[in-house]
Amino acid sequence: MTQTTTDQAGRPTLATSGHGHAAPKAPRRRGRFSWHRVNYAAGAGAFLWLVIVVVPLYILVASTVQSRADYLDKGPISLPSDPNLDSYQNVLEGDFPRYLLNTVIVTVACAAIAVVLSVMVAYSVVRTRSRLSRGIFQAFLLGLAIPAQAVIIPVFWIITKLQLYDTLLAIILPTAAFSLPVSVLILVGTMRDIEEELYESMALDGASPARMLLQLAVPMSRAGISTVAVFSALTAWNGFLFPLILTQSPENRVLTLGLYDFVGEFRVDIPSLLAAVVLSMLPIFTAYLFARRQLINGLMGVGGR
């Protein structure tokens, strides 16, 4: 009984795992004649948007490879006359590596916490006979609607009381907590698709819940788990509000906060400032080249919160 009701509640998940089989079997083709007409208009619109997306990114990269004097002289859109990597060297010789290390620590920790906890919650919600399962699922559904800004003041209080203010843990704990709702929704969707018979055959062998989780549920939800990992990592990597409010010293600064501070440090050295921006985006853009599908699925989670 409980199982069927939670099944219904389980539907409004972000069901990112379904990305593959949700796609249509065949490309949508329109009438032969109108086909060409739409191509021109839509193509022109898409090209326009391409320009709007690419020009700022070009300016970003082009600005970083010219000297400060060149930038002041010629402005951002000109081709750099004497491209060099001085501004990158500038940034890398500063505090950037430390911020990068902090960000990596925060990102890995958040992804690990989010994955472990949401796997356990989702497994329990999907498989348990307890009547509480529906309530727990709906609590996370509601949790989705809590904006981090709305609770930042009490979180600041809690972190101070725990004497964690200005530590990396101060960033990690709330950041991971706020990626839990989306993670749980994604994994509940994935785990619900695992067939009952598989569990039953394991049960016949006398498998414990823990063994079923590790040998059946986890391997079968790899897609959902990687989506959750990417989503929570991306949230942590790009997170700004928690670091801004909950840390202070340069030792515990993450990249986003570091960038925010570079504005003062490099005041008019715009090439160096933008080089820092490029370097902060580089790891994710690189990952995008190799794991586009997972990143896009994770991104759906980012906006969903």
């Binding site: 356990m120 919650v121 919600v125 348990t128 839990l180 049960a203 819940p209 079923m212």
Partner: peptide
């Protein structure tokens, strides 16, 4: 071999 609700408690 069903898990109890206890599995959800840490996350909750």
């Amino acid at each position: 071999g069903r898990p109890g609700i206890a599995w959800a408690i840490p996350g909750v």
